[in-house]
Design a protein around this nucleic acid. Structure first.
Lengths: 212, 212
DNA sequence: ACAAGTTTGATAAAAAGTTTAACAAGTTAC
DNA sequence: GTAACTTGTTAAACTTTTTATCAAACTTGT
């Protein structure tokens, strides 16, 4: 087994990977078997050169004179993104957003929701998404007994950091944070934020900027 | 009225503005009246130089020897983001995510949800978020009779582009898209995406990258 | 009113990141 | 076998982003 140099791949490239994958899935579903960077360029709006260079960060998946095999490349990109693995997930905070995201996860392969936690007594005990909602105070104990890869935080702002601390201490590998603040986590815990307010405000900025 | 040069401000700066605002709000709520870029640096983790330069893209809000007035700067940043205006919003797609986002908007000042649309017969007619859910086929007509600034798309992938077309044709200023695809919109319509899958996959990437 | 200390706004320099261009070498297809 | 095609790779160009610096302006305390 040869170990490839661990050069860091730029964030811009990483953020384009899901788009490539989405695009390849559509091609695959349409029965297309091969695709050239030129064609992909036409479809995605990116330059062919950029597409080739992006993919080459991870290896040479194409063949001169032929292009890329759609199905193979789709799998490769999935592998790069870590989607060939199975992740165990807990949801902390089961308000509207937590419920929506939990539901969303039900249809996602590779991400298995194993526990749901909330502080609201009227939610605790109810069975939703096929799981019983547990009291948030049981989170720490639950994590001791169950290996969890990803913790999702959909609590309010006030509780989020302490939840993040508990999750981090328990050894989760990543946190998907929906609470509107900047969490502090150990550097071995990967943090990905979905800041709805920031996104909406950015939109408001561009709207009002555009009107000038 | 003097018109400032319309130099384009970099995206990185724009994406930091909501963070500044969040931070300033906390300071304001804590009763802090003045703040220097040095202090802000300590709190946010950004460099003082960068903070000053970010703010100076929009004007000189500080005063030498003093720093910034917290409340004033908070308002200024809000103004830059366009949060001093009122936006009329419609939600298209009222599944789990649409409901969660609608609920989220209820507590947001400046964004008034005026219409909710879905195709699901079991939802249509029901009153949620204080509004009656309308049949999605009425969207076009509704937009003719009501001025709407922002359209939120929380439909499935298949319907999203046609909804975007209807919204764009009706003259909305911005689209907040939650559907997992890249919409094509006229350049006078601002588009902001919240791609949950992309975000989750990015997290998966960094988790599996980190394990190597 | 003054001097010492503070802090901004602005400019310039440096660094980092990203995109594009170009082409040799390998493949395909006829 | 040859013409057309397309990748992987390198290098260059470009853009963006960050950091450093300092004169000018203000505050504060005496």
């Amino acid at each position: 087994m040869y170990s490839k140099e661990k050069r860091k791949v730029s964030p811009s490239v990483i953020r384009r990977l899901p788009k490539y994958r989405r695009c390849l899935l559509e091609l695959k579903n349409s029965g297309v078997q091969r695709i050239s960077s030129r064609e992909l360029s036409r479809i995605t709006g990116l330059t062919a050169s950029q597409i080739r260079q992006d993919l080459n960060n991870f290896g040479g998946f194409g063949q001169q004179g032929y292009g890329y095999n759609v199905e193979e490349l789709f799998e490769e990109v999935g592998g790069i993104l870590g989607l060939d693995k199975e992740y165990t997930v807990v949801m902390v905070g089961f308000g509207n957003l937590g419920q929506a995201v939990s539901n969303y996860l039900q249809n996602k392969e590779g991400f298995e929701l194993s526990g749901i936690f909330d502080v609201n007594p009227s939610l605790i005990g109810s069975a939703l998404c096929g799981l019983k909602v547990r009291d948030a105070s049981e989170l720490e104990e639950y994590l001791r007994g169950n290996e969890v890869d990803i913790g999702i935080i959909a609590t309010d702002k006030g509780s989020a950091q302490s939840v993040a601390d508990v999750l981090s201490a328990a050894g989760v590998k990543g946190i998907w944070n929906f609470a509107p603040l900047d969490l502090v986590v150990p550097e071995n815990v990967m943090l990905e934020n979905v800041h709805l307010s920031d996104s909406l405000y950015t939109l408001a900025y561009y709207i009002s900027e555009h009107e000038k």
